Amino acid sequence: MDLRPSALRALCIIDPAEKAAVVRDLHARATTLTLDPGAVLDEPAGLPGRPALPRLVPAMAVPRRSHRHPLGLAALMHAIAHIEFNAINLALDAVWRFPGLPPAYYLDWLRVAAEEAEHHLLVVGHLATLGHRYGDFDAHDGLWTMTWNTRHDFIARMALVPRTLEARGLDATPLIQDKLREVGDLAAVAILDVILREEVGHVAIGNHWYRWACERAGQDPVALYPELVRRYEAPRLRPPFNLAARRAAGFTAEELVWLQVPAPARERT
């Protein structure tokens, strides 16, 4: 089997548990798979494969609930499960969609997909202890929307999905963990420890391939980034920022200085 068509078939799987299992198996067998980086694959309709639930609504329409209430705590964990499911899909899309890249690129993103699958299963397993399952709450589609919007622009994909939207998780996770400690859900805190540690590596992969793509195109990665943010209307990044995690993920001092400029001034650069 070839790695890239296999990733596309996995992306088409509707059932989250089946998708996670297939992705983990693909990663376990990565060294035995063939790889044709130059193949241009036909895109099937209906990407990505996903279940009928959760119902997808605009971000502002997702109900806000207190984590201090059992239903609010479950909704918080459901939101994380949804993020991790979408992260499986975006990693698989990165594997199959872009031809002509170094083999290491495809192996990197297959590893990301497998780790995101593990994250999704961990969170869904914990959600079950709270009396709920994936699909019980409404969710929004922001992560996949940006993945789809950048499907024809490899540099923008690397800039705006892993190192922008996923990097927001580096900032948000410690704050979520504080909420979970407040209500005594230490099992969830431990799950998020795993997710945060591995997400640093995922963002680092995005940083690496963004800079690689910029060098190949003769672009300055720091100067290009704000232009891509404006072009694709990426979400505004607001403090607090987890600077230690961002440094570990490969953001440069120059990038972190720019990030901490107040948003209105930053958007004029």
Rank of each mutant, 00 (worst) to 15 (best):
P5K: 10
L11S: 06
L11Q: 13
C12I: 04
C12P: 06
I14H: 10
I14A: 13
P16T: 07
A17L: 12
E18Y: 05
A20I: 07
A20Y: 10
A21G: 09
R24A: 13
H27W: 15
R29G: 11
R29C: 09
T31S: 13
D36H: 15
A39V: 15
P44T: 03
P44W: 06
P51Y: 01
P54L: 02
R55C: 07
V62H: 15
R65F: 10
H69A: 13
L73C: 04
L73Q: 08
H78W: 08
I83Y: 07
I83E: 12
E84T: 05
N89S: 14
L90A: 10
L90M: 12
A91Y: 06
W96N: 07
F98V: 00
A104D: 15
Y106S: 00
L107M: 10
L107K: 11
H119L: 03
L121K: 06
L122E: 11
V124F: 00
G125C: 04
G125D: 00
A128Q: 13
G131Q: 03
D136S: 07
D138N: 09
W148G: 13
H152E: 14
F154Q: 14
A159W: 01
L165F: 02
L170A: 05
A172T: 09
A172N: 08
D178M: 13
V183F: 03
A188W: 01
V189Q: 04
L196H: 14
E198V: 10
E198I: 09
E199S: 04
G201S: 08
I205L: 06
G206W: 02
G206T: 05
G206Q: 04
N207A: 07
R211P: 04
R211S: 04
E215N: 10
G218W: 03
G218L: 05
G218F: 03
Q219F: 13
P221W: 01
V229D: 02
R231W: 08
Y232D: 02
R236M: 13
L237F: 04
P239W: 00
P239T: 03
P240G: 11
F241G: 09
L243Y: 02
R246Q: 01
T252H: 06
A253H: 15
V257W: 07
V257G: 00
W258M: 12
L259W: 00
P264Q: 01
